[in-house]
């Protein structure tokens, strides 16, 4: 069996200590070891964004991250974001604008959308589309997702 390693990190504001396989990716760790299933497996190759999480303030594809590399870092998943009142407006915007259909891409979309709002609060539709270029959605055609994020920018101008 493969080598294991101890790590300690902050997960949604709480310190977490785990022993993980050194080859395990952060997505499998979150879903199978920690048991937080809001972060989705869509492709395992960083092409779809369904597994997007926030690491030290930046979004990453958790499927491309080695779990051991989380050591000492600050991780926020959709569960953490959903518990943060600051994110309520964004979630409400997704609901209100019809940005959710099957919903499988939605947690990753919301994570990435929150990152766009954090880093570029004045983002226009084009900037939002570029910000979401790593998140695939098969249901909505993206328009309502972009509308939702745009409405949440600047507190809905």
């Amino acid at each position: 069996m493969s080598l294991k390693h101890d790590i300690e990190f902050t997960l949604n504001g709480v310190t977490k200590r785990l022993t993980v396989d050194v080859t395990m990716n952060a997505l499998d760790m979150l879903r199978d070891v920690v048991g937080l299933t809001g972060t989705k497996y869509g492709c395992g190759e960083g092409e779809c964004g369904a597994c997007t999480v926030r690491v030290d303030g930046e979004t990453r594809n958790s499927c491309l991250m080695f779990a051991v590399d989380l050591d000492g870092r600050d991780i926020v998943t959709i569960e953490g974001l959903a518990a943060d009142p600051k994110a309520d407006a964004l979630r409400d915007a997704f609901v209100e604008h019809g940005a959710v259909q099957c919903g499988f891409c939605t947690p990753g979309m919301v994570m990435q959308a929150a990152h766009i709002l954090d880093t570029n609060p004045d983002a226009d539709a084009n900037a939002i589309k570029r910000g979401l270029e790593g998140n695939l959605c098969r249901c909505t055609g993206y328009k309502k997702i972009v509308d939702a994020v745009e409405s949440a920018c600047c507190g809905g101008r």
């Binding site: 299933t37 809001g38 972060t39 998943t77 959709i78 569960e79 974001l81 959903a82 979630r91 997704f94 609901v95 019809g98 940005a99 959710v100 919903g103 939605t106 947690p107 919301v110």
Partner: peptide, 9 residues
């Protein structure tokens, strides 16, 4: 079902 989905639940 949108609120649950948007919250990852």
């Amino acid at each position: 079902d949108a609120p649950e989905k948007a919250a990852g639940k």
